[in-house]
Design a binder for these strands. Structure first.
Lengths: 114, 114
DNA sequence: TGCGTATATAAGTATATAGTTATATACTTA
DNA sequence: TAAGTATATAACTATATACTTATATACGCA
């Protein structure tokens, strides 16, 4: 008997959240680095509220956690979350996204806020 | 360097398809057994077109394949599909759905068509 | 305290999605 | 060939989703 880590309904909820290119990329990035909202805004070239709303959805199911450091709020993967082990084999198969952070560093937008 | 099995955009498309309870359960069932449309109709208690439309989406990305046997069309997981290995660790973590087929057998609705 | 920056939330909108009913197509069998 | 069963597609509808702009809140610093 294979161990079941999540129920069907919960799994579908999580997978629906991952089924968005922006959120999926966010999670892959967060698996590699802590990021703040303004970095995501720069990376994805969408409005700041749009990023906040994506992060809220991920936070609402506990996939990510936030930590305020002064003016900025840093997001990271919540590795204690029940769904984290469900996520891991997925994220492992996704292409490395660290080049995006490197791009930020190159044009100075990473330094600006973090 | 971890081997990348899928690109971001494709992964998001696949995960969005999995982010629906009906389709996710279908895939888990198909991982265990071949099924035909009428069985899914019975299991999920939705209209036949609804089931057909779900199956079409899964077929369009190549996750499932169909095989006509007389009057019936049997669906199964397409294990040669590029996304199959992406899927496997996910499906493994989902609860076994064979009890649903057992239920069909018990009330005779499995026999009716397959 | 007042201003600038970072983030969150509210409200609105366009599009996507999942279901429905109606109908078409394909096969089986009398 | 006609009737019955299985499946697919078309058209429609209600709801969900992802974005936008406008505004509120929180923090740092002069």
């Amino acid at each position: 008997m294979v161990k079941v880590s999540v129920e069907m309904e919960q799994a579908a909820v999580i997978l629906k959240l991952l089924g968005d290119k922006t959120r999926l990329t966010m999670l892959k990035l967060l698996d590699e680095h802590t990021c703040c909202v303004c970095e995501f805004v720069e990376i994805f070239q969408v409005s700041q509220p749009s990023i906040s709303q994506h992060l809220r959805k991920l936070r609402d199911v506990g996939l990510v956690k936030e930590e305020r450091k002064g003016q900025w709020i840093f997001y990271s993967l919540n590795k204690t979350n029940a769904y984290y082990t469900f996520l891991v084999p997925l994220l492992e198969q996704l292409p490395d996204q660290r080049y995006r952070l490197k791009e930020l560093e190159e044009n100075g937008t990473r330094i600006n806020c973090c």
